[in-house]
């Protein structure tokens, strides 16, 4: 399917442990899909596998961005193909400023040797930082070093806004956020919603989905999607708890 993030029968493991088991999901561009599920069910693995993390191995299955196969590609090629992973625990990069980091990512998307418009870059960077209520001094701070949980997540969304991928996978973006930060981060995401971007929002809690209202909600358990529905499914899940998933849905 063109214009979709398509994941087909994906089987992936870390070491000897199988984590994704025949996982399939399609996220059409322009939609926001949420994946919820108990801890240890493979949500973060899915994010890492899609992004090409070398610790995971894929036994079988496929994943396409608008028809382009990404399984087997190097992580940087996957990112340039249009997939963005907002990390649950973003790495601290000592000595590399946010401005230089994002700049390098943008330069990597340009034709080789093409001039980089630094003036336009800073103008855009500052504008996006303003919407995320980030102090402009952050541009010269080292990536994530000494950042609070909220600052790290804002920094992830800033990168998302600057890199404008085709699909964004948000891995537990709500973890470690207080309510104000959650609101700011969600506003940032909601601004990006539109026909040109698809979202896969991975979360353990329904709280985030009050701010980023999904088009579809999928429940993941034991390495695959066990149930899908509209946004009300998240509310139902919140009410019934994950035991409902384990007892009823998993056996369905």
């Amino acid at each position: 399917m063109p214009d979709s993030l398509v994941i087909k029968n994906l089987n992936a493991s870390i070491g000897d442990r199988a984590i994704l088991k025949d996982f399939s999901l399609t996220v059409p561009k322009g939609e926001v899909h949420a994946i919820m599920g108990p801890n240890g069910t493979g949500k973060s693995t899915l994010a890492k596998v899609l992004a090409g993390h070398p610790d995971y191995s894929v036994q079988s299955g496929e994943a396409f961005i608008d028809g382009e196969q990404i399984i087997g590609q190097e992580p940087d090629a996957i990112a340039r193909a249009g997939l963005f992973l907002a990390f649950q625990y973003p790495s601290e990069i000592p000595g590399v400023t946010i401005a230089n980091f994002i700049r390098a990512a943008l330069v990597a998307r340009q034709a080789k040797g093409a001039p980089f418009d630094a003036k336009a870059y800073y103008a855009e960077l500052y504008a996006k930082m303003d919407t995320l209520k980030m102090d402009r001094k952050f541009t010269s701070r080292f990536v994530n070093e000494g950042f609070s949980g909220g600052e790290k997540k804002r920094c992830e969304i800033l990168q998302l806004m600057m890199l404008k991928p085709k699909y964004a996978v948000l891995d537990e973006t709500d973890s470690g956020l207080d309510i104000d930060a959650l609101r700011i981060v969600s506003e940032g995401v909601n601004r990006l919603r539109g026909p040109d971007m698809g979202f896969l929002v991975i979360t353990h809690y329904q709280r985030l989905l009050e701010y980023i209202v999904p088009d579809r909600v999928h429940i993941m358990y034991d390495g695959r999607i066990v149930h899908s529905g509209d946004k009300d499914l998240a509310i139902e899940l919140e009410a019934k708890g994950y035991d409902w998933v384990k007892k009823d849905l998993a056996s369905a």
């Binding site: 992004a51 090409g52 993390h53 070398p54 190097e74 992580p75 940087d76 996957i78 990112a79 340039r80 992973l85 990390f87 973003p90 790495s91 601290e92 990069i93 980091f101 994002i102 390098a104 990512a105 990597a108 998307r109 990536v143 990168q159 890199l163």
Partner: peptide, 14 residues
């Protein structure tokens, strides 16, 4: 390796 992956995941070549 985690720092490296973070940079790669932004499309920055190795």
């Amino acid at each position: 390796p985690e720092e490296l992956f973070y940079l790669l995941a932004r499309g920055i070549p190795m």
